[in-house]
Amino acid sequence: MRIIEVRNKQGVPDVFGQDVRKNIREMGISGIEEVVASEIYGFEDSAGDDELRYIAENILVDSVIQEYCLNGEKQSAGEGRVVIDVFYKKGVTDSVADTVKTAVKDAGIKTDISISTGKRYYLRGSLTEEDVKSVCMKLLANPLVQNYSIRYEEGNKSNA
């Protein structure tokens, strides 16, 4: 699966990230320092990179406030954050995915694309593995309908 990530440009406040941070604090996890939230769109391999860029630029991104990256490019390495991706399980209604398909068709792209939509969260702070798992299970994902994955950017484990 290839992923287009859409996030706010530098200087545009990330209101959702701030909201999630507040909620993590409420759970009693005080080590959390910063949360950045972004939208992710996962594509099965039917579409080519050029097509994906076209879709990102013309359909997914609001150029005044957002930017995108394809497959993790432009990622500033070594920030040492926890990265959590949350997607719906197969068979669960993913209405945004259906809408993207409609929009892709409107834009004249003939390729039949397969897509799922989700959220990505970057967590910075001194968090134990247990903290991270708890945040996933109790706040960011519901295992009944969603899958989540946890990944550590380089340089993180040290402060865990």
Binding site: N58, D62, S95, V96, T99, V100, T102, A103, D106, G108
Partner: peptide
């Protein structure tokens, strides 16, 4: 429009532009 999926009005903009 279209649930404001992606972002508000975005899909309709696309449709209007193309049609």
């Amino acid at each position: 429009s279209y649930g404001d999926d992606i972002s508000a009005g975005k899909v309709l903009v696309n449709e209007i532009k193309h049609n």
